[in-house]
Design a binder for these strands. Structure first.
Lengths: 92, 92
DNA sequence: GGCCCCGATACCGATTTGGTATTGGACGGA
DNA sequence: TCCGTCCAATACCAAATCGGTATCGGGGCC
């Protein structure tokens, strides 16, 4: 599992469409398809149902989605925290 | 930033020693040195002080450490959640 | 001054990754 | 029913990434 895979998963889940998600992520469609497939392989379970219209989240994917978002948010928070020392307490 | 980098960072922070951390992670020392360097480059700030005895966390690294651990834990939790459907509620 | 322990770097081969082109399947309209 | 369209999946190749071995450079410590 990688952060790139999680980011890709969230984008595809939100767009319900690999092509649109690819445009949003500034990559072409095939690598994005492979990222999703790689994530499913890593987890050992499918996350989406492939329909003729696009991608629909399976229950497993629905369970992953909020956690994936939380992880990506935590990454951003960590990035910020490294740079922002907490405000000094007057007592310290 | 990648999960591999975060995992490497936590190991080096805990061991205070690139060589020991490398053994623990089952990689050789040079790639681990590069992962740490890559993370520092990505964040734009050093995380460790290099001493003749090993590595010591800088304040920036101290701020990152608990967050890195939390992220790695969240990854494991997500992995588990995908496989474990929540117990059915009798009311549902 | 010589030895030892540490992380950093050079170099090379292997793996991974991305892009273009193409395929195959499912709809929808004429 | 056949053709055009839209979707994800795959084949293929080039570029980038990554890991390992060998080596370097700097500090301590006899």
């Amino acid at each position: 599992m990688s952060l790139v895979q999680l980011e890709s998963f969230v984008a595809v889940a939100e767009e319900a469409h690999v092509g649109r998600a690819a445009r949003r992520l500034h990559v072409s469609q095939p690598p994005l398809t492979r990222r999703i497939r790689g994530l499913e392989d890593d987890l050992g379970t499918p996350l989406f149902e492939r329909t003729p219209r696009g991608m629909r989240l399976l229950p497993s994917g629905q369970r992953l989605l909020p956690r994936a978002r939380a992880i990506l948010d935590a990454i951003e928070a960590a990035r910020t925290a490294v740079h922002d020392p907490p405000a000094l307490n007057d007592d310290s």
